[in-house]
């Protein structure tokens, strides 16, 4: 699934411009992480792609098809998004209902629905909660249900809009492992919008946004080396890279070995 932004302009009000002459191409089967400070326009990009916001000018192509009023339903069929706050997207009375909601909208036969509900709830380890109501779940548990719901739609493109921010470290790890697994096995295109550098380091490609501009675009290794750009964008590089950088001008024992080991620990795990 290919997504292309061509000279897109967007603003919420007259005072502030969020995206200005924005160009970006995301290729089929790619896992892209979009990094940026609060208010850099990360989530706006996702919402524009889903047709939730209308651009002031410019075009968006989904699989080479122009996103417009006429094609929006078809385009949405290829995409699913998981938002930051699970409370905003929980529609069902129970966990099962919530996941079924999206599937019902796709007119799937009952057996397929049942099968998918069980399959994906198991994947996010929420199978035991199938008949629970949302208010009985904690924030992180709700988010896992939301992820299962999006997965169950089996779209070509999945957007994760800071969707692990409310999970505990173990939950975050599980979800990230899951994202990698889905990408590997199903050749999905995945966009992860995040502040978390570790989460971004799993991606094939990282795009850094600052005030609506792309300021860096490359592999995790290339981008994390660029500490100045990250810092200017309200971000920090990985701790290991920052340590190498901070101690660059100092002498210490095993210097080259430690530097080598820190690089290895950051990217080869």
């Amino acid at each position: 699934m290919k997504v292309r932004f061509n000279n897109v302009n967007f603003s919420y009000d007259e005072e502030s411009v969020v995206l200005k002459n924005f160009n970006l191409t995301i290729n089929d089967g790619e896992m892209v992480a979009i990094l940026g400070h609060n208010g850099s326009g990360k989530s706006t990009i996702a919402k524009i792609m889903m047709g939730l916001l209308e651009v002031s000018s410019g075009e968006i192509y989904i699989n080479d098809k122009l996103l417009s009023q006429e094609t929006i339903d078809e385009c949405r069929n290829h995409m699913s998004i998981i938002f930051q706050n699970p409370d905003n997207q929980f529609v069902g009375v129970t966990v099962k209902d919530d996941i079924a909601f999206g599937l019902e909208n796709k007119n799937l036969p009952r057996e397929v629905m049942e099968e998918r509900i069980h399959k994906y709830l198991k994947l996010v380890s929420m199978e035991d909660f199938i008949d629970h109501a949302p208010e009985e779940l904690s924030g992180g548990q709700k988010q896992r249900v939301a992820i299962a719901g999006a997965l169950a739609l089996e779209c070509e493109l999945m957007i994760f809009d800071e969707s692990t921010s409310m999970l505990d470290p173990k939950g975050t790890k599980e979800v990230n492992e899951m994202i990698k697994k889905i990408k590997k096995e199903n050749n999905k295109t995945i966009i992860v919008i995040t502040h978390d550098l570790e989460e971004a380091s799993y991606a094939d490609r990282i795009i850094v946004l600052n005030n609506g501009f792309v300021v860096a675009d490359g592999t995790p290794k290339e981008v994390f080396k660029n500490e100045l750009v990250l810092e200017a964008s309200g971000l920090k590089t990985m701790e290991s890279v920052s340590i190498i950088h901070n101690l660059k001008n100092k002498e210490y024992k095993n210097k080259s070995l430690i530097e080598e080991a820190l690089w290895e620990l950051t990217f080869n795990e």
Binding site: I243, Y252, K253, L257, I258, A261, L262
Partner: peptide
């Protein structure tokens, strides 16, 4: 986490596990 792995490789040594970036830098500098 980094400190534990660097110690496993025999590259650094410490009595108290460093818990922040600043502490790890101190340990690396000896």
């Amino acid at each position: 986490n980094l400190a534990v792995k660097l110690k496993e490789k025999g590259l650094i040594n410490y009595t108290h596990l460093p818990l922040s970036k600043e502490e790890l830098e101190t340990v690396i500098l000896g």
